[in-house]
């Protein structure tokens, strides 16, 4: 059974029909990527899954349980963490305080310490800057921080919204390597990306979203070879 099952969701912004029946599923241990152009509905899909938006139709199920009855903030308790678009670090708090905020739902101090240590092992850059104010970090470091913070809740499923946005290419490589590592350590990942080539390179499967509808879905390597995808998203003629 799929870990996350999104079934025919329709989401509206008032009268604008943003998602027109999106269905997808993510299995345990996978990296699944959702690619598409500007305004295709990628972020809307992610926000609907995380409960920040409510679909008018359709359902989002986690391990078979319908998530509609849970408000957004309770999803963390269900093992779903989100890294929002544009990173959303707490700019005025220090790196360390940001990471501690991620463990908001956790009351076990020893476990928080352990998780913090492993976050610092994963991101040595953040350890160097643990006392620095997050707003003064570079874009790439803020992205690392946002991911580290999301991992503090020890999620089973990690939702990532455009982690490569606004980053230098060299940093993008690093971030995607990290995502792959996190997945190998046992966290399932749903990755929303505009940078289709990078996303398809690390993902197991992919979905292509166009104006609120899934137009293609396949194994990642096959999608990367698909003519339409190459033309539209990979810049290959």
């Amino acid at each position: 059974m799929a870990m996350l099952e999104v079934n025919n969701i329709h989401t509206y912004y008032d009268k604008i029909h943003a998602l027109k029946g999106v269905s997808l599923h993510v299995d345990q241990g996978e990296i699944v990527t959702l690619i598409g152009g500007n305004g295709a509905g990628k972020t809307t899909t992610l926000r609907t899954i995380s409960g920040l938006l409510k679909p008018r139709e359709g359902s989002v199920k986690l391990n078979g349980e319908d998530l509609a009855k849970y408000p957004a903030h309770e999803l963390v308790y269900k093992g779903v963490s989100m890294v929002p678009e544009g990173r959303g670090v707490f700019a005025k708090l220090t790196v360390e305080e940001n990471i501690e905020m991620g463990a908001y739902i956790d009351n076990d101090k020893a476990r928080i310490e352990r998780n913090k240590e492993s976050a610092f092992t994963r991101f040595p850059r953040l350890k160097e800057r643990r006392k620095q104010v997050a707003g003064t970090l570079s874009g790439g470091e803020q992205q690392m921080l946002a991911i580290a913070r999301a991992l503090m809740a020890q999620p089973k499923l990690l939702l990532l919204d455009e982690p490569s946005m606004g980053l230098a290419p060299i940093l993008v490589d690093g971030i995607f390597d990290t995502i792959k590592e996190i997945n190998q350590d046992g966290t399932t990942v749903l990755l929303v990306e505009q940078n289709a080539s990078m996303a398809l390179a690390i993902a197991h499967r992919g979905y292509v979203l166009q104006t609120g509808e899934i137009v293609l879905s396949d194994k990642a390597d096959k999608l990367a070879k698909n003519e339409t995808v190459q033309k539209a998203y990979l810049g290959i003629d």
Binding site: G88, L93, Y104
Partner: peptide, 22 residues
């Protein structure tokens, strides 16, 4: 107090951390 500060900084992220905004 931590919840208030997180909310002041970014409501969406605070919610994603598991904070009940209401």
């Amino acid at each position: 107090g931590r919840r208030w500060m997180a909310m002041r900084e970014d409501e969406d992220v605070a919610e994603a951390m598991g904070i009940n905004l209401v």
